[in-house]
Design a binder for these strands. Structure first.
Lengths: 197, 197
DNA sequence: CCCAAAAATTAACAATGGTTAATTAACGCT
DNA sequence: AGCGTTAATTAACCATTGTTAATTTTTGGG
């Protein structure tokens, strides 16, 4: 069940946890490998998976009526990923979660883990902190849409996550920024020209 | 300190609370009246006020370098309002919170209320639920920016909060939607024309 | 009730983004 | 390495928005 590498992993990520709680959690957790391009969560899914990304990158996207894909979120190594609709709102997921790279997840069922989380002060605090982080990220991104132009949003994104350009196709980045893929090309070109002077 | 109306109010809003917890909270709480136009929270403020809006409407806005005001958030009666930066991130507020109407708040200092919240399972759960709601709102609004056009965002806003048009000046609504005030006028006109046919 | 100030509308123009289609470049698979 | 597929770029054109300034409307105070 647990090999030495796994134990090391749990000890490092949850070192602030009571040992018993950690073992209880570890019993519920398992590792999942996704190939590049593989779908992690299908729309309509209600499973309350909560996953820590050990390595790789997950894209959350939506399908519009006309068939267009719109990227809503990107999550990568050392972040958590969960179906927002299923875990937070307890509804079927409207979105698709796809691994863009070979991805390693450590997954627990939130529904099963909940009673462990609830009885551990540290885990409760951690889940609170997790929510705060999610909220902080969301607010920050909202500010970007209200305060910044598409060009500025793009610059902010590459500043915060420089390797994103090499890991995520432009067409996905574009819709994440709220613009069309062609526009991202133009913005890139505009920036390059300004830089040359 | 507490009059009959106040007691009624606390009993109705926090009826699911342990009586002792409720009394402890009520001791920390006080009512605050704001006139239309009055500033509630100044930028730079670090006070961790957490307020329930009994009546009225609060606008959160930011000042850009060029002096332009950009509205980030609107909160109204029966919602909570708090300085996101101060309470969630424990930083000085970057934003200005202003009452757009005569507004009645019931206010507690989150810093002082925290130990009451922490020792009450009901209050802890409520604060968790509160965060989930904030997160849900933020995600929903993010979806709007990624999936919808400005016109569709405007229609969504008036659909969700029909009286917003009569309570908030257009110039504030415009920046909330991520567009310029002039554009909102045009969008309004376009919609009216389409409707006439 | 009137007047001054603020807000909303409108128009003209510039800048930007959306859309489509064609071309080029990059990628991935065998 | 080569080939077919997918992604990215580019261009042309259209639609929409941003910007500014002038005009009209609305609002609120005296």
């Amino acid at each position: 069940m647990l090999n030495a590498a796994d134990i090391n992993f749990y000890l490092s990520v949850f070192r602030w946890l009571d040992l018993k709680d950690m073992m209880d959690l570890a019993r519920l957790a398992h590792t999942k490998e996704l190939k590049a391009g593989e779908i992690y969560i299908q729309p309509g899914s209600t499973s309350q998976k909560l996953a820590y990304i050990k390595a790789g990158l997950i894209r959350t996207y939506s399908l519009k009526e006309n068939g267009d894909e719109v990227t809503l979120m990107l999550r990568w190594e050392n972040q958590f990923v969960a179906s927002f609709d299923s875990v937070i709102l307890a509804k079927p997921s409207r979105f698709i979660y796809q691994a863009l790279e070979a991805t390693t997840l450590v997954e627990v069922d939130y529904h099963k883990a909940k009673h462990i989380i609830d009885r551990s002060p540290e885990l409760s605090a951690a889940s609170h902190t997790f929510l705060l982080h999610m909220l902080g990220d969301a607010m920050d991104r909202l500010e970007g849409f209200v305060l910044l132009s598409p060009e500025e949003r793009y610059l902010k994104l590459v500043h915060e996550k420089p390797d994103i350009n090499n890991r995520v196709p432009d067409k996905y980045l574009a819709t994440l920024l709220g613009i069309a893929p062609g526009s991202l090309s133009r913005i890139r070109k505009r920036i390059a020209l300004q830089h040359k002077r």
